[in-house]
Write a protein that binds this DNA or RNA. Structure first.
Ligand SMILES: [Mn+2]
Ligand SMILES: [Mn+2]
Ligand SMILES: [Zn+2]
Ligand SMILES: [Zn+2]
Lengths: 144, 144
DNA sequence: CTCATAGTTAGACCGAGTCAAGTGTGGGGG
DNA sequence: CCCCCACACTTGACTCGGTCTAACTATGAG
């Protein structure tokens, strides 16, 4: 727990129960919606690391604060609400199953952004290449 | 106009004024929101190719019909409503300006989907690699 | 002409996220 | 050690983009 506190302080954020609970939830399960984070945080309400429920606005505030300081990252795949994960600093990509929606990490062969070279189109200066592989996950591909 | 009719018929869709107006609007300006398509269609109301206004539901029906038969494609960039364009069949990608939101086409060097090789992660079978380059357009980059 | 099918409309509804304004509290200064 | 206030959090209304439903209307094959 107090390593989370340290992490937050390092980035200039106060260490609050809610922020720790959100970080903890994201560490357990990546690519979750805001609602799923909320449930996880609510569940933390029982047990030792007790935490009072977090309001919707509070949750979005926490997620945005964590994103701003680089601890959290989100993706917004077409047709899905935003999915949140801990920012690993590895600039990885995602593979999303068209039939069950499962999201998988895809390590980036380059590692640093922008990992694909910008096509030199009309002076555009890219800082990131976001790649989503659409298809079928192993399970859905076989059960077809 | 009647080339649009031919196009629709080819794909097994009836040629209606609204469908032609939507195709025409998208031919004029790519990467537009549903609302922008609606305005364009409404504007077509005056002039020779007169068309009665299209309801919201009607618009989404038309867009979905056109998408289903492969005439229209849409992207849903993070933080933006869906953007529609004519499906050129070239599997191109997009560069989006973080500051003004301008969207540019980026020709795909491969051309056919999936243009990037599938990450061999856990049996995932990709059929498309969607790439978005985030950064600054020429104008916004210089005016920084 | 006739009626099945395709297209269209109006309006309620929904999920995800934001805004604004007030209340509570972590943690450094006294 | 305690006080204070900037920062954290709550509440409730609201927006936006899109979907659902249940009519209603136009089209065209037979
Ligand atoms: Mn990930
Ligand atoms: Mn395009
Ligand atoms: Zn799947
Ligand atoms: Zn720009």
């Amino acid at each position: 727990m107090s390593d989370l506190t340290a992490l937050l302080r390092e980035r200039g954020l106060r260490s609050t129960p809610h922020r720790r609970a959100v970080l903890y939830a994201l560490a357990e399960r990546p690519h979750v919606t805001a609602n799923e984070v909320a449930s996880a945080v609510a569940r933390t309400a029982s047990g030792p690391g007790a935490v009072t429920e977090l309001s919707r606005q509070g949750l979005y505030n926490v997620l945005e604060d964590l994103r701003r300081v680089g601890l959290v990252r989100s993706i917004e795949p077409a047709g899905s609400p935003a999915l949140f994960e801990l920012q690993a600093g590895d600039n990885h990509h995602h593979a999303i199953c068209r039939s069950c929606g499962a999201v998988q990490d895809v390590p980036c062969s380059i590692g640093a952004a922008p990992c694909l070279d910008a096509p030199s189109v009309g002076g555009f200066v890219p800082d990131e290449a976001e790649i989503v592989f659409w298809g079928r996950c192993a399970a859905c591909a076989t059960s077809l």
